[in-house]
Design a protein around this nucleic acid. Sequence first.
DNA 1: CCCTGATTCGC
DNA 2: GCGAATCAGG
Length: 230
Amino acid sequence: MSWTDERIERLKSMWAEGATASQIAEYLGGVSRNAVIGKAHRLGLEARPSPVKPGEEKGAAAASARPAPAAAPRDPVPAARDAAELAAGDAPTGTPPARVTRPVPVPQTPQRPSAPDPNVQYRSVGPGGFIRQGPGEQQAPIPPAPPRRLVPAKPSPEIADKTSLLDLNDRICKWPIGHPGEPDFHFCGNQANPGFPYCVDHCGVAYQAQLPRRDRRPPPPLPFGGPRVR
DNA sequence: CCCTGATTCGC
DNA sequence: GCGAATCAGG
């Protein structure tokens, strides 16, 4: 969405009427609150009462309370400063003025192995494989793996002859045997009762005739959802 | 947590 | 120019 004349006029009027940036963004649609604020500033619209006062440094208290951020403030107009030095005429020939360079982020040595270091990246070296790599470290390009044919993994012996999740269709019983996550978890696999997800036997467990209230029995334990005993 | 506007900075 | 990310106060 672009800032058409119409949308700019809407922004101006709503901003003047005191609508919040969020309201304006919601009304215009297709733009974020930040986009509205950014546009309002670029248009030079009157500043709104902001919860954040830009000025009024708290002196040493504020300076010490929040040390300089890792990213140093940008060198204010370095070209102008260099020009001033040249104009002063005290720059010896052959001695370039010392450049103020932006500090380079220094990778920190983790004190604890468990401390996450944002500078360290984990690069994939194949399915299931990762290597740990710091920003300064070099790694030779990994030669392409020789072409291999991907074959399905062999099912674990516990379910080799059982009905797995992938074997399910609408003609076989989906009654779970065991619990998900266990090595021998599988499904009943018998022929399903047509129109039902389970075989006749398990339909008899899953579906029960409605009885008069007085004859209701407490429900049997559910195959899922009940408290697990380990 | 939510909200707000201001500011920065990569695109 | 644009706007996401970030900051900081309410």
